[in-house]
Design a protein around this nucleic acid. Structure first.
Lengths: 214, 214
DNA sequence: TGAAATTATGAGCAAATACTTAATTTATGT
DNA sequence: ACATAAATTAAGTATTTGCTCATAATTTCA
């Protein structure tokens, strides 16, 4: 439970096929254990046991419990980034209008967050993460904001003044709302289709609005 | 560390002035300790020590560590609710236009979340809370949505169709965005005034927009 | 005053927990 | 086949944690 955190690198990196599988199995088990027990109660022994691997093996490839959580999160970050670029690719190829483009974006983010909502929540909020991971998260978000801005800028109906701030708010909004919606899928009284539509409507209105509208 | 959770009620409720002070001191200390150590590392012994009270005394008035966190959170919930009703009072008395009203609302929520952002984050996200607390949180949010809807409805420039869903999205948006903004006050590259203004602008645009705007 | 009720004490327990290490098994390449 | 490197094992350590309980101090009120 204590933060010893002496070792920062794993003792071994997997070189044989066997151990690469072991690492994968451990991460898979960790995801399941964290998902069903939370971070604090997701003990390393339980993870090892679930992976069908001895606790010693686990500590060969992960220097600490924290390292496991970080590895899991990095995976998720990479996937989100991949998803975003996939979206950009689609937008460039197919000629979508603004509504369709934003609809795709919001839907994609919602699906992203809906995948393992509890695990993501645990990793992002319940787990005390090292500073560098927080930095990485912030940078990823800023990168996303720029990417979105680059695409949105192309649509003529979008007002151009203050687009910097506007896109920041939009990315934050989509991120927050989809995260929130996906995190509590049960106690929502709005169906997903309507929810996505409303969010898109709000963003479009925001993008078009005259800034002199007191 | 373990979740024993046998006892659900405190052994004693404070009846003398002395013990009432003790309870307050414990809660104050708990807030400080959680804020600086997080939930897991915010041990009951540390809380008692910080409060200048023996660990036994702490357990006279709080049956478990969890109970302390819940008490702290209930305090915060009550304050939020108070704040909301105060806002409604102001709106009814003074005749604000839509922009002013929403500006007050967003600012109020932001101040609310900015008060002890780290503590709130720890209590809301890092702490494993019992189900009934989650229920209370959801109910509080729905209550807030209805209150906001009741006020917004009065403004003639607001479109009337689908206001149910619209207000749900608005409350979620304000809640999420202010929470997020307040949680990471350092790494924001948008000043607070501009942030609030942008959010209000978005909401107003959303409230006015024609729903047939593909 | 003095006895009953309330409040405070803190050493210590039982139950974890993250992690180590010495020994063993399995794979690799020649 | 065989020596070396890689991978796995699981019993065990040191530490921490939430919490109890027997005792003592203080307050209340007759």
């Amino acid at each position: 439970m204590t933060a010893r955190k002496q070792r920062l690198d794993p003792r071994k990196k997997p070189v044989q096929k066997r151990s690469k599988i072991t690492v994968d199995v451990i991460l898979l088990a960790a995801a399941q254990v964290f998902e069903s027990h939370g971070y604090a109660a997701g003990t390393t022994n339980r993870i090892a046991s679930r992976a069908g691997v001895s606790i010693g093996t686990l500590y060969q490839y992960f220097p600490s419990k924290e390292a496991i959580a970080v590895a899991l999160l990095e995976r998720h970050l990479a996937e989100t980034d991949h998803r975003l670029h996939e979206w950009v690719g689609h937008m460039v190829v197919e000629q979508h209008n603004l509504y369709e483009a934003l609809h795709d974006y919001v839907t994609g983010m919602l699906e992203m967050h809906a995948k393992q909502p509890r695990l993501q929540h645990i990793l992002l909020e319940e787990t005390p993460l090292p500073e560098r991971v927080h930095q990485a998260l912030i940078e990823a978000e800023q990168h996303a904001a720029k990417t979105v801005a680059g695409l949105i800028r192309l649509y003529p109906e979008v007002r151009s003044n203050g687009l910097e701030h506007t896109c920041f708010v939009i990315v934050q909004t989509v991120e927050s709302l989809t995260h929130r919606y996906a995190a509590h899928p049960d106690d929502q009284f709005i169906p997903q289709a309507i929810f996505v539509d409303e969010v898109v409507k709000m963003i479009i209105a925001y993008l078009k609005c005259d800034s002199s509208s007191l």
